[in-house]
């Protein structure tokens, strides 16, 4: 089976990870723009990062037969500085035009502050104006429930079709509301702070397998670029048929991402 990992941060991973992912059957990945672990000092720093996402990573992935797409934005962890945000937002449309960029992401909230919300709204305006797909980061841990609700309200205010928005990093207390409001839901397989494979499959069992994708969000933290393959194995151990596993790890993300004409599988 060909896997799609629709949320992974390969700029933080090694080339050996690409090799392991290819051997495990991961053929397509999408990489949202995110936080580097430190705050960048200027829009020029983001320009370099966006170049990396749109030029270097697709070429590095292609050497292993992996298709690499990305998403462009200023991530919510660097959204408190409104002046920097405005400078970065000014260069975002230039990169959204590139052939491997599928939309705006990962935008959202981190600590649920007023400035973060303002920068989220700036991104949503760009997405609405250009009819872009949107990939949303929801906050960590204790901030997730409140942030998820604030984000969904903000998207609604911009009259963006929720079927073109994935609300990622959903967990037991948020996935039901995300799906009920018409959005796609992402489950992230990440040690300690997000879902284990077993819990993610539990969420599928209680919420169904429609409009849901699973991803690793592997990055510079303790994380696992093969997490999607391990979750598929969890489903297999529980007795799921192969067509359901394929739906979750290939067909669902392909259906969402395929709303962009740039996505070729």
């Amino acid at each position: 089976m060909n896997f799609i990992d629709p949320h992974i941060h390969m700029v933080s991973r090694t080339t050996a990870d690409y090799e392991a992912m290819a051997l495990a059957g991961i053929r397509t990945i999408t990489e949202p723009a995110f936080w580097a672990g430190y705050d960048r000092g200027s829009a020029a720093g983001f320009r370099d990062y966006f170049e990396h996402l749109t030029v270097f990573e697709p070429a590095r992935a292609a050497k292993f037969g992996i298709r690499h797409y990305c998403w462009i934005c200023l991530n919510p962890k660097e959204a408190e500085d409104l002046a920097l945000a405005r400078d970065v937002l000014a260069i975002v449309p230039e990169f959204l035009d590139r052939t491997t960029v599928l939309g705006v992401g990962e935008i959202g909230l981190n600590k649920n502050s007023r400035n973060e919300l303002a920068v989220l709204e700036m991104h949503l305006q760009i997405a609405a104006d250009r009819n872009e797909l949107v990939l949303v980061h929801t906050p960590h841990l204790e901030d997730k429930l409140k942030g998820t609700r604030l984000i969904m309200d903000a998207v609604k205010n911009f009259r963006i079709d929720p079927s073109r928005v994935i609300i990622d990093h959903g967990e037991e207390h948020t996935v039901g509301e995300i799906l009920d409001r018409g959005f796609w839901a992402g489950l992230t397989l990440y040690p300690v702070s997000k879902c284990s494979p077993a819990r993610a499959v539990d969420i599928l069992e209680t919420n169904g397998t429609d409009r849901i994708w699973l991803n690793s969000a592997a990055d510079w933290g303790v994380s696992d670029p093969l997490a999607t393959v391990k979750a598929a194995n969890e489903m297999r151990m529980r007795g799921y048929p192969e067509e359901t596993i394929r739906k979750v790890f290939h067909d669902n993300p392909a259906a969402f991402l395929g709303q962009s004409p740039k996505f070729a599988g």
Binding site: K77, E80, N110, K111, N112, S113, R114, N115, E116, L117, P139, H140, L141, E142, D143, K144, L145, K146, R149, L150, E171, E172, H173, S193
Partner: peptide, 23 residues
């Protein structure tokens, strides 16, 4: 999950100096 969650509904005034979550 709800036992660990922020149950307020209004955005905080500022996230300056704040990055992580406590759990």
């Amino acid at each position: 999950q709800l036992a660990f969650s922020d149950l307020s509904t209004e955005p905080i005034e500022s996230a300056a100096g704040m990055k992580g979550a406590c759990g």
